[in-house]
Simulated assay, not measured.
Amino acid sequence: MASADSLEAEVITSNERFTVTLIISALKAMQALMRLTGLSKTDVINRSVQVYGFLAEQMNDGKEVLLRDREGNLEKVHIL
C-alpha cells in the first residue's frame, strides 16, 4: 500500500479523470454552486474537494468550524 506522502506527490504531479455518481443532495448543491459562482462542474468539484480537505485537516487538529452572522452570533458547523 502506498504511503500518504507518495499519494500526495502523485496527485500534485498529475491530473486524474474520475467518473462519479452524485447523490441527489450533492447534485443539487453542485448545481446551486454553479449558479452562484459561475464555475464549471469540474471547478466546483475541484474546489469542493480542496475545501473539504482543508476543513478535515483543521478538525483533525482539534479546531472547530464556526459561522458568524452579521450580528456577531456564532454557530458551530458539524461536518459528518
Rank of each mutant, 00 (worst) to 15 (best):
L39I: 04
G62E: 01
L39T: 05
R35P: 00
V11Y: 11
T13I: 10
I12T: 05
L36F: 01
L67E: 06
A56E: 11
H78N: 08
K63A: 02
E10H: 12
L66P: 01
K76S: 12
K76E: 13
S3W: 09
N73P: 00
R35C: 03
M1A: 15
K76I: 14
M30H: 07
Q58A: 03
Q31H: 07
H78A: 08
V65Q: 03
I12R: 07
D69Q: 06
G53F: 09
V20R: 04
M30I: 11
A32D: 06
F18V: 10
L67V: 10
S3I: 08
L55N: 00
R47F: 07
L27F: 11
Y52S: 14
L74H: 04
G62Q: 01
V77E: 02
I23T: 12
E8Q: 14
E64G: 01
D5R: 09
N15I: 13
R70A: 11
D61C: 02
A29H: 06
V11R: 13
V51Y: 07
L33I: 05
S48H: 02
M34K: 09
S14H: 13
I79G: 04
M1D: 10
G72S: 03
A9G: 09
R68V: 06
I79N: 07
N46L: 08
I23R: 14
V20T: 07
V65G: 01
L27W: 11
D5S: 11
Q58F: 00
D43V: 12
A9P: 05
Q50L: 14
Y52M: 15
Q58V: 01
M34T: 05
E57K: 04
L55K: 00
A26Q: 13
L80H: 14
E57M: 04
N46P: 03
A4F: 13
G72P: 00
G53W: 07
K28R: 12
R47P: 02
L80C: 10
S6N: 13
G62H: 02
A56P: 01
K28L: 08
A26Y: 11
G72C: 02
T19E: 05
R70E: 10
D5W: 07
N15S: 15
V11L: 15
Q50W: 08
N46M: 09
S3C: 10
R35E: 03
V11P: 04
F18H: 08
S25T: 12
G38V: 03
L7G: 06
L80S: 14
E8A: 15
Q31T: 06
S3Y: 09
M30L: 14
N15K: 15
E16F: 15
I45T: 01
L7K: 13
A9N: 12
T19H: 07
Q50F: 11
D69M: 08
M30V: 13
L67H: 04
F54D: 09
A2E: 15
L22G: 06
L66D: 03
E75Y: 06
L55S: 00
L22H: 07
V51L: 12
V44I: 04
G53M: 10
F18E: 04
T37H: 02
A9Y: 11
S25E: 15
E75N: 06
E71S: 12
T42C: 02
D5V: 08
I24H: 12
L22A: 09
N60Y: 06
N73Q: 07
K41C: 05
